[in-house]
Simulated assay, not measured.
Amino acid sequence: MSSLDVASARHLVANNPDTLVVDVRTPAEFGTAHIPGAVNLPVDQVDTHLRRIVADAGGRMILVCQGGSRAERCQRVLAAAGLADTTVLEGGMNAWAASGAPITRGVPRWSLERQVRLAAGGIVLLSVVVSLWWPPARFLAGLVGAGLALAAVTDTCVMGLLLAKLPYNRRGGTDIERSLARLSRRG
Rank of each mutant, 00 (worst) to 15 (best):
A79C: 03
V153C: 02
S127V: 08
R114L: 00
R185M: 15
L4A: 11
T19I: 03
L83H: 06
A79D: 06
L163D: 05
A38C: 11
A97F: 03
V130M: 08
V54Q: 08
I62K: 09
L126H: 06
A149T: 09
S69A: 15
G92C: 12
F139I: 13
L118R: 04
R73M: 09
V54T: 09
V153A: 12
R73Q: 15
S184L: 07
A164N: 13
L12K: 08
R10H: 09
G147I: 11
L180Y: 05
D175W: 05
G59T: 06
V144D: 10
R182P: 07
T174R: 02
L161K: 13
V24G: 14
V39L: 15
E177G: 15
G100T: 13
C65L: 01
G59L: 05
R171G: 03
R25S: 07
S127C: 10
L161V: 08
P27D: 02
L148Y: 03
G68P: 00
P136T: 07
R138C: 02
R170I: 00
T156Y: 01
R170C: 00
V43W: 10
L118D: 01
D18A: 11
A57I: 03
R25A: 09
V43A: 13
S131V: 05
V24L: 12
V130F: 11
R60N: 05
V158R: 05
A101H: 11
G172Q: 04
M61N: 07
V124I: 15
L162K: 04
P102H: 01
V116K: 05
T26A: 02
V6D: 11
A101Y: 06
L183C: 09
R105N: 02
G121L: 07
G121P: 08
V107N: 13
G100K: 09
R52G: 11
I53W: 13
M93H: 08
E72C: 08
R178C: 05
